[in-house]
Simulated assay, not measured.
Amino acid sequence: MTVVLRAATPLDAGATGNILWQSLRRAPNAEVFSAAEAIGYCGVMIERNWVTVAMSGTGVQGFLARDGQEICALYTAATARGQAIGRRLVEKAKCEVSRLHLQTSGANTRARRFYARAGFVPVPPAHRARPDATQPAWTYVWQKEIAA
């Protein structure tokens, strides 16, 4: 599959929102939004120019939302998993800033392995992100190496 990365436009809110909604519906212990709320949330991130989408001939395959150095969201369509789309989105973000950080649930072992392979270093949780959270959030940090 040929994939092109580009800045999201307002017309991408529906596709990115659907990818987010579908992903959250499958995740254990995730706060589930309605499909309309997920589309609205993605629309706001797109309006703020935070979102890069991965496009193929069949449409949006994934997206990364970044506010400065913080990765706020990284999701791929279920049919696009395992095709290095997430890796490509993260590599693009790494080219744009010298440091990145994010949080992911301790229960999301797949995401934790992905970020570790992408060069992010885990910072063990000191406390629960929310009092009702069953798993504490883990922070991951990536820092561009500075040549001596």
Rank of each mutant, 00 (worst) to 15 (best):
Glu31Leu: 13
Pro124Lys: 01
Ile46Arg: 01
Ala84Met: 13
Leu20Val: 12
Ala107Tyr: 11
Gln135Met: 14
Thr139Glu: 07
Trp50Pro: 03
Gln103His: 10
Val123Lys: 11
Cys95Trp: 13
Ala133Lys: 01
Asn18Leu: 12
Trp142Asn: 00
Gly106Phe: 12
Gln61Tyr: 05
Ala36Ile: 05
Phe120Arg: 03
Ala93Arg: 02
Ser23Glu: 12
Pro122Leu: 08
Met1Asp: 01
Phe114Gly: 01
Val121Glu: 09
Leu24Gly: 05
Gly14Trp: 14
Arg110Pro: 08
Tyr75Arg: 00
Ala30Pro: 01
Ala147Tyr: 15
Arg99Ile: 06
Ala7Trp: 11
Ile85Leu: 00
Ala27Ile: 01
Arg112Pro: 02
Glu31Gly: 11
Arg25Pro: 07
Ala73Ile: 03
Pro125Thr: 03
Thr134Phe: 10
Arg6Thr: 08
Thr9Lys: 05
Met55Pro: 01
Gln61Ile: 06
Leu64Pro: 03
Ala116Ile: 15
Thr104Met: 10
Asn18Lys: 12
Leu102Pro: 06
Arg117Lys: 10
Gln143Thr: 09
Gly119Gln: 00
Ala27Leu: 07
Leu102Gln: 05
Trp142Asp: 03
Arg25Leu: 14
Ser98Asp: 12
Pro28Tyr: 03
Gln61Thr: 10
Arg130Thr: 09
Val90Lys: 04
Phe114Ser: 04
Pro122Glu: 14
Arg81Phe: 10
Met1Gln: 06
Thr76Lys: 02
Cys72Phe: 15
Gly68Phe: 04
Leu64Asn: 04
Val3Met: 06
Cys42Ser: 08
Asn29Glu: 13
Glu70Asp: 15
Ala36Ser: 14
Phe114Asn: 05
Trp138Ile: 15
Glu70Gln: 11
Ile39Met: 11
His101Tyr: 10
Gly17Thr: 04
His127Ser: 15
Ile39Ser: 12
His127Asp: 15
Phe120Pro: 04
Met45Gly: 01
Ala78Ser: 12
Glu145Ser: 11
Pro10Ser: 02
Glu70Thr: 10
Asp12Gln: 04
Arg113Asn: 08
Val4Ser: 15
Arg48Pro: 03
Val32Asp: 04
Val44Ile: 06
Ile71Trp: 01
Ile19Glu: 11
Ala30His: 01
Gly119Cys: 02
Gly86Arg: 00
Arg26Ala: 13
